[in-house]
Design a protein around this nucleic acid. Sequence first.
RNA 1: GCCCUCGUAGCUCAGGGGAUAGAGCGUCCGCCUCCGGAGCGGAAGGUCGAAGGUUCGAAUCCUUUCGAGGGCACCA
Length: 546
Amino acid sequence: MTPDQLSSAIAACLRDAVAAGDFEVDVPSEVRVERPKSREHGDWATNIALQLGKKAGLPPRRFAELLADRLAGIPGVESVDIAGPGFLNIRLDAAAAGELARTIVEAGEAYGTNEALAGHVVNMEFVSANPTGPLHIGHTRWAALGDSIARVLKASGAEVTREYYINDAGNQMNIFALSVYNRLHGLPVPDGGYPGEYIRELGDQVLRAHPGIRELTLEAAIPVIRQLAYEAQLKDIKATLADFGVEFDVYYSELELHSTGAVEDAVDRLREQGHVDDVDGAVWLRTTDFGDDKDRVLIRANGEPTYFAADAAYYLSKKDRGFEEKIYLLGADHHGYVNRLKALAAAAGDDPERNIEVLIGQLMSVNGAKLSKRAGNIIELRDLIQWLGADALRYSLGRYPADSPMTIDPELLKRNTNDNPVFYVQYAHARSRAASVNAEEKGVRRSVFDASLLGHETENELLSHLGRFPSVVAQAASFREPHRVARHLELVAGAYHRWYSSCRVAPLATEPVEDVNRTRLWLNDATSQVLANGLGLLGVSAPEKM
RNA sequence: GCCCUCGUAGCUCAGGGGAUAGAGCGUCCGCCUCCGGAGCGGAAGGUCGAAGGUUCGAAUCCUUUCGAGGGCACCA
């Protein structure tokens, strides 16, 4: 029995009790069952009596007493105890608990998916690094986290589009092009320009694509260089993201917003909504109507649109493309944007509480990371991947919530012991695969499944962690916190190791294969499946061997 | 000055109203005659930054306060 099944069975009991006149209360749509911290408190516990007792006009303990007998009648429930102020502690019989192992094996990769966010149409924008240089440490955390959030959202039934906004418009593109131009002509880096060896590499690529580029005048060369160098740099960014296991569905060009007139349209549309003012020759969006601390300029007095105007057009594009929920992942250094983005959504006629969500993450650092000379003394993502491995990096970034600053310790990540959580979890997976192979070599097959044979204490613990996996995924999705998945995998891995050390899958050489071995193979394989599914959500591989 | 985030074990951190606040590391003590010891079992370690409040119950929610980090462009 899965916790979800238990939870709906309890809700049914509540409805029965109300129908029988035991008490008068509105039955909530969802009854939460929790894993008690102490094993003495049973397999599952619910505080429903504490929540509803008052509403029913009964002391919680009395409410619990009225419910307990009905709960005890649920098939698969062995016993129900009332504890403390009115907790209901539920113990399942071994067969009901063990049935889960078969459920998981049969569900395979689908185990853990759920419908918590079914019907949600989500646009997730993250990374969006300027195409003027390689990805660096500042983009790393959001690449990992954004991708994992997208994965848990999808696993929970949401329709998700991962989107990368390319800032290919502003003046930085001209400076970028000029930096390459100067490099091609052996001139120094321009004021505010981009240093670093990669500019020379880009110059080489531009030269290959356009051998006569050096002969062109500055005015003629810049647009050509800008385009070629931009394409080469974007390709490089995509390649690095691919190495990191991150794929975007849409790369959205800021330049297109300008060239197609979308920016002007956006200003007009906002004006129609009645939130635009003309002051001192500039066009302003009255974001203070919606909680921003000052109004924002859309079109400067010189007629040039601001970056914010493009943001507005981009937001409207997302809205027009049918995205109900627009999630932005920004670094803490951009948190000043939150209010104006929300105000923008409101000015566009959206509900800032529902249609837009801005996730702010704190910055990260890596102890002892080498600065990249080729990129101008920044720490490149490409180098981090090569140094630490994509798996270790993805997992480390995935196991912390976004809102606390973090420091990565490379010495730890390179260690193959269980203070390195990625190894701990991957090891458990590899070990379970090895155990499975070994068992099959000894003649153990999943030909028999008798859940009542899974009665060992460690099996009970392991099963309960496996059973909670789908709700952990659902929670990770609704809180946008994939680290919950990582933490849960660590619990599963720990429970697996404990089980492994007290219950053999394959029999000893001197003993015959019995049903208990066959049944345990199901549990073993169910564990592999959960670990693999969970690691997949984090973008981390689940190795067969290490 | 205003705004946002964070203060939990020696360290790195979980904990989104519930029972005796958890995990890993580090420290100490144990466990390999057969499926991966890259593991497992146990011990020690806490005024949850502080003070009020909300209620049956607060690390969790609210207010104040102290400390750390970040942000407040007609830049992109």
